[in-house]
Design a protein around this nucleic acid. Sequence first.
DNA 1: GATTGCATGTAACTAGTTACATGATTGT
DNA 2: ACAATCATGTAACTAGTTACATGCAATC
Lengths: 181, 181
Amino acid sequence: MNTLSYGLLAMLTGGPRTGYELMQQIQPLWRAKHSQIYPLLAKLEQSGYVRFVPVAQKEKPDKKIYSITEQGIAQLRQWIPNTTSEPVKRDELLLKAYCVSLTDPAAAKSLIQARIALFESKLEKYSQMLAELKKELDGELSFTSPGFGNYILLQRAVSNSQAELEWCGWVYGLLPSTASV
Amino acid sequence: MNTLSYGLLAMLTGGPRTGYELMQQIQPLWRAKHSQIYPLLAKLEQSGYVRFVPVAQKEKPDKKIYSITEQGIAQLRQWIPNTTSEPVKRDELLLKAYCVSLTDPAAAKSLIQARIALFESKLEKYSQMLAELKKELDGELSFTSPGFGNYILLQRAVSNSQAELEWCGWVYGLLPSTASV
DNA sequence: GATTGCATGTAACTAGTTACATGATTGT
DNA sequence: ACAATCATGTAACTAGTTACATGCAATC
């Protein structure tokens, strides 16, 4: 049982999903490719933590709808209070930032602009998702409601994207203005 | 040449360092163990991107002081404008957050408290480093000054730690107050 | 006609972690 | 006594990525 396996179980507490849907849902929390997820789901099934129902489709490939079992929930419950490993962040941009003086300001600017574009799209996506969730919850947000986890994570994703954009803007302002051709 | 290799070259633009020092310096930007770094340094040396001077020490193990070569700098220069890969973040806490309703509020609180402790220590560390760097730079911060990269990265580390703590505090406030025994 | 989305899976590879190995000094 | 810091390295393992494989529908 590695962390991703627990993560997949965690996602399944939100309801039954296909491997493909799990793969998409877990991305913002734990990046993983389908080639890593499918074998883990097979292991989880063998261990009795999840089960699946095969669903045949006509115009799309057949699929397997996974749900978490009682055993799986027990497994999650004992995992949560365990020591949480330190978050890992690996960002090539930060390595480039360290030696950015090696290049001209124009190159530095396009570096930052690419990052701004990336996080603007993320911000938009997460803001929308948060707005929709808020509509659904309709003011009824409490620890016990099933959308609670989702809510605090979306709020985080939004404020995180905003912080990223602020930093980018600040750095951009520090770069010397290049008199354009 | 993988990203970590470029990262090591990037760190060496700040001056000559031992493998051990490089390992420590790169941690906040790109987590890596010494067992990954030493073999990469050997490869970089064989490729001519770095060179080292062996230094014998009496009361400590001998060491190798690495510096970046002209070729290494050229390599960095061509790397910077390349497409930057998306940052990867993997945080077990977020997976736990998604299914936190499975546990009691007390467990959720200690989860958050552990994270608060972690980032309070980080904030303290980075704030100190930033304050020292500001003293050194003494108002003279510009794109071309060698401390520029360090400066923008430390500023980021500080504001990032603050944002993390804010989110933790906000979540903590949402958790139901447990009437203690 | 080419790409994207749905949907699953395996094979081959690279990246990253843990453990083994050594050894003196300093602090608890 | 025991752990931590400095300092390097290798071996064995796990985790994660890229590539291969299939196939139909809709969109561009």
